[in-house]
Amino acid sequence: MIVLLFRLLIFIALALLVYTIVQYFRNPDRKLQLAKAANTFYMVDDPGNSKKNIQFVYKSCLFEGEKYIDATEESFEVVDIHVFAHDTDELEGITRDDLYFIEKELLIRYPHAAITWKYPINKLILTTID
C-alpha cells in the first residue's frame, strides 16, 4: 500500500514538472524578451480583452499600448490606442518609418483605432521632414 502511494506521489510530481516546463515555454513575457534579444518584431495581445494592454517589441525597444473602447457605427470596437515606450533610452535608432510600420501592424489588428504616441515619441512624428 505504501509503495502504491509513493508511486502515485512520484507520478504527480512528474506531471507537475512537465506542466511547469510547458508553462515556461508558453510564457508571453519570455517570448517578448527573446524577441527583444533577437531584435525582431513580436506582439502580445488579447483581442478579446479590451482591458489588457498590448505589449510589443520592435528593434529591441519594448512598447506598450493602452486600448480604449467606444462605439462605432455598427458595434463597440477599440477606437483609440495610446502607445508609449517603457524605457526611453531604448528608442535610440527608431526612425519615423519604424513608427509607421508599428502603426500599420496595429491598424491590421484594430482597423477602427486611432493611434496616439506619447512623449517623447510624438516629438518625432510632429517634426517636419526637410
Rank of each mutant, 00 (worst) to 15 (best):
T88R: 06
V18C: 13
A38L: 07
T95F: 15
E66V: 14
T116L: 12
L107I: 09
Y100A: 13
L107F: 02
K31E: 08
R7I: 13
I21D: 04
Y42V: 13
A13P: 09
L107T: 01
E66G: 03
D98F: 11
Y19Q: 10
E74R: 07
L62A: 10
I2Q: 13
Y110C: 08
V78Q: 01
Y19R: 09
K67T: 01
Q55A: 13
T88F: 03
F25D: 00
F63S: 04
L14M: 15
N39C: 12
A113H: 05
L14P: 00
P120H: 02
L34P: 00
Y68K: 11
V78L: 06
E73C: 12
K52C: 04
V3F: 14
K36Q: 15
R96L: 15
A38Y: 01
D80C: 08
I125D: 06
S60A: 13
Y24H: 10
N49R: 05
L4T: 11
N122H: 02
E105M: 14
I12C: 13
I129Q: 09
A37Y: 07
K104L: 11
D46T: 05
T20Y: 09
K123P: 01
M43T: 00
S50V: 07
L32S: 03
F56N: 06
E64R: 12
L16D: 07
I94E: 04
Y24L: 11
L91Q: 05
P47R: 05
P120N: 08
S50A: 06
S60E: 08
T88H: 06
M43I: 15
V57S: 05
D97Q: 12
F101T: 00
V79M: 11
L8R: 05
V3S: 14
D29M: 10
I129D: 09
H112V: 00
C61G: 07
Y100P: 00
I125E: 05
V79A: 03
T128H: 07
P111S: 09
N122F: 01
D97P: 02
R26D: 08
V79Y: 02
L107P: 03
L62H: 03
I94G: 02
F11K: 06
G93C: 07
L126R: 10
Y110N: 01
K123W: 02
L32N: 00
V18W: 04
N122G: 01
I81N: 04
A13Y: 02
F84S: 14
R30V: 09
D89A: 08
T40I: 14
V44E: 10
L124M: 12
I54H: 01
